[in-house]
Design a binder for these strands. Sequence first.
DNA 1: GCTGTCACTTGACACCGTGTCAAGCGCTGG
DNA 2: CCAGCGCTTGACACGGTGTCAAGTGACAGC
Lengths: 165, 165
Amino acid sequence: MADIARRAGISRQALYLHFATRAELLIAVTHHIDEVKGVQERLVPSHTARSGIERLDAHIKGWGNYIPEIYAIAKALLAVGDTDEAAAEAWDERMAAMSEGCKAAIGALKRDNTPAPEHSPDEATDILWAILSVRNWEQLTMGCGWPQERYIETLKSLARRILVA
Amino acid sequence: MADIARRAGISRQALYLHFATRAELLIAVTHHIDEVKGVQERLVPSHTARSGIERLDAHIKGWGNYIPEIYAIAKALLAVGDTDEAAAEAWDERMAAMSEGCKAAIGALKRDNTPAPEHSPDEATDILWAILSVRNWEQLTMGCGWPQERYIETLKSLARRILVA
DNA sequence: GCTGTCACTTGACACCGTGTCAAGCGCTGG
DNA sequence: CCAGCGCTTGACACGGTGTCAAGTGACAGC
């Protein structure tokens, strides 16, 4: 909090006039970034995609390229979520939005009659959500050293083989 | 530290006579659990597997069923790893051991001439390692509510479709 | 039986981060 | 002119980690 106040050019106490707790500040930052960087707009291509496969690709690309932009705040929010209920809730809420996108992509596959027979739509959604998680991105790019481009392409390939008949 | 000391029936200060820092204690606990619960023994079936596919299955089962036993300490270690270099290193070291198992399974597939053509052995190892990560387990079982049995079976199925030709 | 050592105890303290409180200051709009 | 607002300074409480000093009690070796 002291660091942030210094960088903002105000006193530490003034920060508490705006945000009651550290968690609240992190939540507000998260919402602000979503607004400025526009999650919604990123997922537009996935709405206008014609086939289910196209939609799957667009969703992976849109979300996958969004992750690096929110990574720092996401990590902070996840960390504080271990002890702060409201922060955990805020994160879950964000994830629910992203999970809706997964669900829609899976739904589009079903409409095309191209879903993999191995999974129910719910299970397929869970799987897609899991492999697109921030933690997974962290592991593959920061942990394994994959460049972002490769992350996107490989995940597209994985998703197709797992979720498309 | 106070809680742990109380549960151990010694004074908080006595704890510091054994472990210099909280991180050091967590690291020691991790090693102790590995010793007692035996990671090595769990992976024996994977060494004796005949085919590459069998080995892949055995590795997923062995490790996948080990995760719930180490989950609590793993989470604590990961959390403290954000600020403590030694803890992060200890975790990476454990992960390297597990990653070796992934590598060996991929190697076995190659020896059988059954690896998926889409990935190099290194990439296949990274992917297997990522989907078998503790975070992924957390997400699917705790987040999505999958029972352990289903987690194992679904991951086996995923791994085959991704990594086997 | 004495003594040194060792594991532990009690009780204090420093430091850091979060969050709170009170008093004061300066600008601006009515 | 002044009330209100946003901010300031400066203090403090609290909890957690880590440190330090002095003391205690048991046990082993002489």
